[in-house]
Design a protein around this nucleic acid. Structure first.
Lengths: 130, 130
DNA sequence: AAATAAGTAGGAATAATTCCTACTTATTTT
DNA sequence: AAAATAAGTAGGAATTATTCCTACTTATTT
């Protein structure tokens, strides 16, 4: 991989947040520093960064989201506000257990919790104006 | 939900297999009994069946797949042959553990293992003809 | 400094999914 | 049983995320 300012900015933008942005979010973030960048460039570089394991790709509702935290951790998806929240839970134990029970060669394990996040639970539901 | 032959056939088709078909697969299956069914009908009924918890929806590589087995079980995704294989592992223990460690109200937990399945591991890789 | 291989912008193409409209059918009411 | 009505359908258009293509640019090597 040859250096490019575009890819560098994309990686920095992803690392700067813990919100698990999608391609469109990343385009918007990078555009503020580099207005001529295009969506093709975003997607091409995202797949390179994923292939080189510099970022993680996660799919929620059929849309790819990207995570600059590549350490073993899991995610919680709030079905109300749609936010994706990091969980400090490792998957290695579950993976080990699974490997003992199967003939498949599992190399990875992703756990996705879902429900209502703490914020949505405590906040009263938005009232709809008449 | 009023009865319809189309929805009934869709549900039966999904229950008849353990291959986790996507919308296109289901269209093809149902068309063999009901040639005039359309993709719009497939999608509309799939989302009703999911909402009524008669089937599960799983997303792999950004594509929705459907599962007629609604009991607590998990999945293994083979990165080589792309097949989705059921795993006889429950998530309730992991979910309980998670609930103790967090303020989020998790109601669901999906675990996805991935790697090379037993078949792909034992079979020699396909040779490419010269 | 010249060569070249990788990267870029931006628009076209593709694929999964949702939306829309006029028609049909299962169910309820009389 | 016939009429009313609300849910369902076919099929095509629209939308959205993503990939592909082409001519141009730039980082790196020689």
């Amino acid at each position: 991989m040859r250096y490019s300012q575009q890819r560098d900015l994309i990686l920095q933008s992803i690392r700067a947040v813990d919100t698990h942005p999608n391609a469109q979010d990343i385009l918007t973030m990078v555009q503020s520093n580099f207005p001529t960048i295009s969506m093709g460039t975003i997607y091409r570089n995202l797949s390179q960064l994923v292939n080189n394991k510099l970022i993680l790709e996660l799919t929620f509702n059929g849309v790819s989201h990207y995570d600059g935290n590549i350490y073993d951790h899991q995610h919680f998806y709030c079905t109300q506000c749609k936010s994706i929240i990091d969980c400090n839970i490792t998957s290695s134990n579950i993976l080990k257990k699974f490997l003992k029970s199967t003939k498949h060669d599992a190399q990875n394990c992703q756990i996705l919790f879902s429900g209502t996040c703490h914020d949505c639970k405590s906040k009263p539901k938005k009232e709809i104006a008449c």
